[in-house]
């Protein structure tokens, strides 16, 4: 019916067979949902370091801010959340590459970062965390005494 183009996906061909909305179709093809239907949602993390500290970007599309939880204990930073399926239970799934469910990911922060100085921002399905460098770990110039 609606299938991806230019991709060698075995289900494309199946879907292509579909020429009308035969009422028997739903039963006949309901097994065709591709694999990741039961996969666990595991967001991708991207870390980037600069002079100010560490920036962590977590891709959480479809996760609302109230379903996200960022915490820090000691020097362990934890990002947890849940991606809830908005799908209609009665809907017939033709393709399911998106995973849902709960996730937790922890990260041990290096000691030169200040775990008390963490900022979090959520925008367009991306959670951005910034951990500042500890004051003592910031680069500074050392005066050279001349004899």
């Amino acid at each position: 019916m609606l299938y991806a183009r230019k991709e060698a996906h075995p289900f494309d061909r199946l879907l292509d067979f579909r020429r009308d909305f035969d009422r028997f179709f739903d039963q006949a093809f309901s097994w065709e949902v591709p694999s990741s239907a039961n996969a666990v949602f595991s967001p991708s993390f991207e870390l980037e370091e600069d002079q100010d500290g560490l920036t962590i970007q977590v891709e959480v599309p479809g996760v609302s801010p109230e379903d996200l939880d960022v915490s820090v204990e000691g020097n362990v930073l934890t990002v947890a959340g849940e991606r809830k399926s908005s799908g209609d239970e009665r809907a017939n799934l033709h393709r399911s590459e998106r995973a849902f469910g709960k996730f937790t990911q922890s990260l041990r922060l290096p000691s030169y970062l200040d775990s008390n100085q963490i900022e979090a921002k959520h925008e367009h399905g991306v959670l951005t965390l910034h951990v500042s460098r500890a004051e003592a770990a910031k680069p500074r110039a050392i005066a050279i005494e001349s004899a």
Binding site: E7, G87, D88, A91, H94, R98, G125
Partner: peptide, 23 residues
């Protein structure tokens, strides 16, 4: 290529695509 979900109800076909960072 964004990850998608295609589902169908009696009234419509729905397509959802993950596009993190896109406004």
């Amino acid at each position: 290529s964004p990850r998608v979900e295609v589902s169908e109800t009696d009234e419509a076909i729905w397509l959802s695509a993950d596009m993190p960072g896109v406004s």
